[in-house]
Simulated scan of single mutants.
Amino acid sequence: MSFTELPVPSLETERLVMRSWQEQDFECLKSIFCHEETARYVGGARSEHMVWRQMATIIGHWHMRGFTVFAVERKDDGKTIGYAGPWYPLEWPEPEIGYALIPEAQGKGYAFEAVLAALGYVYDELGWETAISVIERENEGSRSLAKRLRAHLVGDIILPERPPAEIWRHLSPTAFKEQFGSRVVASISD
């Protein structure tokens, strides 16, 4: 059994392929969402059944919004290590760039690389004029990444069934290109 291929473009960076979701990516999502430590900043641990529903939500998001987070795969071994990209759930104040990686992929610069590619994509291809990231206050790793991306804290947000979080505003498309233009090396294919 396989999923119907969606017309989701693929992004390629130096070390990553960001692509549409495949059934085998469920294992990666289980590694993120089924364990309290890895899921604590993405809504908490849930059952495999609920992770399956989360995957369906991610895929369905493309049909409803015209974008969704990409499955992030390492080029060197083809392993799916997480997700990154545009996301806009009902309760969010505006579209965001979200991400999560499996533990073994954290701390290696993959998130920075993937989020740079995602920001370049939403600005250049989707025409976004702004983007945020919603980050729980205790998530020092994501706060550090937001600062590295030159995002700035603009306020707090209370979301249903979630701990208090912060809204971090990313650079405008023009400022992003000025700051990171030469570092955004994603190529896009359909």
Rank of each mutant, 00 (worst) to 15 (best):
S2E: 09
S2N: 13
E12Y: 11
R15L: 05
R15H: 13
M18L: 14
D25E: 12
L29D: 00
H35K: 09
R40W: 07
M50V: 09
Q54G: 14
Q54C: 15
Q54L: 15
M55I: 01
G60S: 13
H61T: 02
W62A: 06
R65T: 13
F67S: 07
F67K: 06
E73I: 05
T80G: 03
I81N: 02
I81C: 11
G85E: 05
Y88L: 14
Y88Q: 08
L90D: 14
L90K: 12
E94W: 15
E94K: 15
I97W: 00
P103W: 04
A105H: 04
G109M: 10
G109W: 08
L116K: 13
A117Y: 04
E125T: 04
T130S: 13
I132R: 06
I132H: 01
S133N: 09
S133W: 13
S133C: 14
E138D: 12
S142R: 00
R143P: 07
L153I: 15
V154D: 00
V154W: 07
I157R: 02
L159G: 07
P164W: 12
I167S: 01
R169I: 13
L171S: 04
S172Y: 09
G181R: 08
R183C: 15
R183P: 11
V185C: 15
V185Y: 09
A186P: 02
D190C: 11
